[in-house]
Design a binder for these strands. Structure first.
Lengths: 216, 216
DNA sequence: AACGAACCGTACCGTACGGTACGCCTGCGG
DNA sequence: CCGCAGGCGTACCGTACGGTACGGTTCGTT
């Protein structure tokens, strides 16, 4: 159970999804408040049903994170005719999606849950969150970057390095500060600046990896 | 108790420091294993003493994190005669310090503990970790950056933005992946690449903010 | 020597929570 | 109409852990 990571969407009945929704709500409202009793009460079901469906508490947690993380599907960017303007818009869109997801309350909750989980020799949740968060973006961004390089619009040796630089330029210290509960970073504040941050990060990315850049 | 954040180094007796060391060891070994009984046994002291010294479990946790985080004192960089080479060495040193700290087992543990804590309406640990981690670097880096600007070696409008870009270029996705327990990032692997990453990040930082850079 | 403070070890209490058992209701196939 | 499977609600059990109490020991002070 702990070792089987079902990457594909598990097929949950509507009733089960209602239970998962209740569990997620409890997680968001009160991070550690995910007790089986609380979920049962919130979802109006019996604890016995929870155990029948999800095995144990960890199974319920995993199902919740898995199910919710998989819902974070960012819009696919058009990849045809890669002129400079289209490429820039694509990059900006990725930056915007990444920042929007990361600053969302659900994402913060899932990441906190996974980090907490990772602090106890359990890493399955961390893998799930990674797989559906940064790595999902990476999988979709890399082909765009490489297409940009093929079109002589970008210049880099390793698309992995380019991706990680992009991640750093966009995320900066926002995620860790949100995870640590930095009050100075109210989400409204961050959200209000997303557009400016997106533009700045994209500018910097092109300054480093644009074809005309003077990087080694 | 919960509201008083003692920024200055609390003066702990050697015996108390031994207790805090035991607590930290337990945290590192087994993230959630910080039970009062375990600490008392490890430190060969009585639980009653723990409660007398630290008030309650949260007090012990706070004292441990506070005490340990404050120990992360990165070497001060020479700020005199800022020629281009000295500035670059300083920046590199900051990058190296930041990466070294972040990838350390103690830092990972403290950050995980603080994130877990933040998931429960408690934010004091997060503040402590932030204050002694990223913000400590920021406090010491900003003057250097501004001195570099005064010396016409760097060009930027906001030193805050410059710092955050520096943070992103150096940290990238390393910290969040370590916090989530990404096995693909064994620490030895990261540590082995620190020097290369330091150089790359510094190159990129100067490409963006160096006086000869073509940034707006 | 006598006293008391600090502290260790351990036993103890109350509670919270994971997990299980059981009685009851509802809906559906024969 | 009967039986039964699925599921709800609740009661229950065992354990782990935070927090307290207490007897015994060491050590410094007078």
């Amino acid at each position: 159970m702990a070792l089987t990571i079902k990457v594909n969407e598990e097929t949950f009945t509507p009733r089960q999804q209602a239970v998962l929704t209740a569990a997620l709500d409890l997680l968001v409202e009160n991070g550690d408040g995910l007790t089986m009793t609380a979920v049962a009460r919130r979802a109006s079901c019996s604890k016995e049903t929870l155990y029948k469906w999800f095995g144990d508490r960890d199974g319920l947690l995993t199902a919740t994170v898995q199910w919710q993380a998989a819902k974070v599907r960012m819009p696919v960017v058009d990849r045809s005719h890669l002129n400079a303007k289209a490429l820039r818009l694509s990059i900006e869109q990725f930056a915007r999606d990444l920042l929007t997801v990361i600053t969302g309350e659900v994402s913060i909750t899932l990441n906190r849950t996974a980090v907490t989980h990772a602090a106890q020799e359990k890493d399955s949740l961390g893998i799930i969150v990674l797989e559906n968060g940064p790595l999902a973006i990476r999988r979709r961004l890399k082909p765009i970057l490489e297409a940009g390089r093929d079109a002589r619009l970008l210049r880099f040796d390793s698309s992995e390095d380019a991706y990680r630089t992009f991640f750093g330029l966009v995320v900066r210290d926002v995620q860790i500060r949100l995870l640590l509960g930095d009050k100075a970073l109210t989400q409204t504040n961050v959200v209000a600046n997303i557009e400016a941050d997106v533009k700045a990060a994209t500018d910097q990315f092109f300054a480093l990896y644009g074809a005309k850049a003077n990087n080694p």
